[in-house]
Design a protein around this nucleic acid. Structure first.
Length: 265
DNA sequence: ATGCCCATTTGCAATGGA
């Protein structure tokens, strides 16, 4: 089962790039962030015609998440529990009914800049809610994939220029601590698990985001902020995790690229 | 040190992104 996460930065602007990538990559499940569309505005028929079931949780102009799946989806839920007053569309979950059922959490974690400030407080509060929700899901001891745009640079090796991010909400110590607390519940970073750091020959750096500005892509000035975290039962099925970096060099690209796993399920 | 670019908006300048 191939499961991909992809921040598309606007569905209207990305219809061509997304359908091209889906056609060639053929993921069973595509978890999307920043659709920047209300549910009624999402071109669902286009993806249904490609064989996908389409579940969206959108809002006007900003944010918005979706799950496209070639396998049946069950128990679709929208919104991150823990704050009934939170109106930002940043979370969707569903169970993919393959040979082995896999629960998928699709998230678009708040950016949090500028830090400190109310936006940063919202980011940390959102992460605390995510931690609670993941803890409860892990208690079921089933295959679970918690994936999306985390807006977190976990380690210095996940940025081309880590010093440039020291005071940014994506790399502040409190942000990374909150991320580590979630991982420490018992999740495995699929990319790190399949691309282990083995000094003195570390693997080449790979990123999932390059800013549109200042020729970041051409200079490979990127960061790795899109992650797939796996429960132990999902990690047991992990075969492969790769980043489709070449997508960033195409026409009208998103500033993020797809990251995907292959599970033996 | 600052801005660079891109997407969206009951749009034509402002906001959010990271």
């Amino acid at each position: 089962m191939k499961i991909a996460t992809f921040n598309i930065n606007g569905i209207k602007a990305r219809i061509g790039a997304l359908t091209d990538w889906l056609s060639e990559a053929q993921p069973d499940v595509a978890v999307l962030q920043e659709i920047k569309s209300v549910d009624e505005g999402f071109p669902r028929e286009m993806f249904e015609d490609m064989g996908y079931q389409v579940e969206t949780h959108g809002q006007k102009s900003f944010n918005g998440v979706a799950i496209l799946s070639k396998l049946p989806l069950e128990d679709v839920r929208r919104g991150l529990p823990g704050d009934a007053g939170d109106e930002q569309a940043r979370f969707i979950e569903a169970t993919v009914c393959g040979e082995v059922p896999v629960r998928i959490f699709g998230l678009y974690l708040p950016n949090g800049n500028p830090a400190p400030g109310p936006k940063y407080d919202y980011k940390l509060a959102w992460m605390a809610r995510l931690e609670d929700h993941v803890r409860a899901a892990l208690a079921l001891e089933e295959p679970l994939v918690v994936c999306g745009d985390y807006n977190i640079i976990p380690q210095p090796e996940d940025a081309a220029r880590p010093d440039a991010w020291r005071k940014d909400a994506l790399f502040l110590p409190a942000s990374r601590e909150a991320f580590r607390r979630i991982v420490a519940l018992g999740l495995t970073d699929a990319f790190r698990a399949t691309h282990p750091h083995m000094p003195p020959s570390p693997p080449p750096q790979q990123f999932s985001f390059w800013d549109y500005q200042a020729g970041a892509w051409n200079r490979n000035d990127g960061i790795r902020i899109d992650h797939l975290l796996l429960s132990p039962q999902a990690a047991d099925l992990l075969r492969l995790c790769e980043i489709d970096s070449d997508v960033r060099g195409r026409e009208k690209p998103s500033d993020h690229v797809p990251v995907w796993i292959d599970l033996a399920a």
